[in-house]
Amino acid sequence: MEWILEPWPWYVSGPLIAGIMFLLLFGGKNFGMSSNLRTMCTIGGAGKKADFFAFDWKSQRWNLVVVAGAIIGGFIGANLLSTDTAVIINSETVTTLENMGFESAGEAYLPAELFATDALTDPKSLIILLIGGLLIGFGARYAGGCTSGHAISGLSNLQLPSLIAVAGFFIGGLVMVHLLFPLIF
């Protein structure tokens, strides 16, 4: 059982993700995480500002419970199921990141330069995280889904809209990493 404390390989993780989608389908629901952001906006009173948020959020309560589970699962994964949380990425990627100023590459789960609690006092890190979040929230709702709704559920159902969305995800990601990162970092 030692393997469980190691990072899980793709051929274990991928099938488990498919399994989660099927568990939800057999539970009578669809796998989609970004719709929770809309639900949270509605709970916060956004329905007064835009009709998009005027819906009965209680029908989405089950998905908020999935969110609560994901938080607990993250705690378990990090604290009970891991001995070393460093992500061993390709050594070439490490070199690239070190040249960009990411000293924590290959030694941490997330880059300390962006995600360490004291990085929150750095306006640049704060703005990067905030803008990243803005794009995620705006883009996911505009596209009608995120990685779980489009790349997993939608593509599994061979839907053309999801293929277009996933192509968009990759265009955006490639532009960010290859064209914008050299300007940002």
């Binding site: 979040g133 596209a143 995120c146 969305a165 996933v166 968009g168 995800f169 990601g173 532009v175 960010m176």
Partner: peptide
């Protein structure tokens, strides 16, 4: 899907 997808992808890569 294309415009929303691109915006999402930019954020996915930036915030990781």
């Amino acid at each position: 899907y294309m415009y929303g997808g691109i915006l999402f992808g930019l954020g996915w890569a930036l915030a990781g």
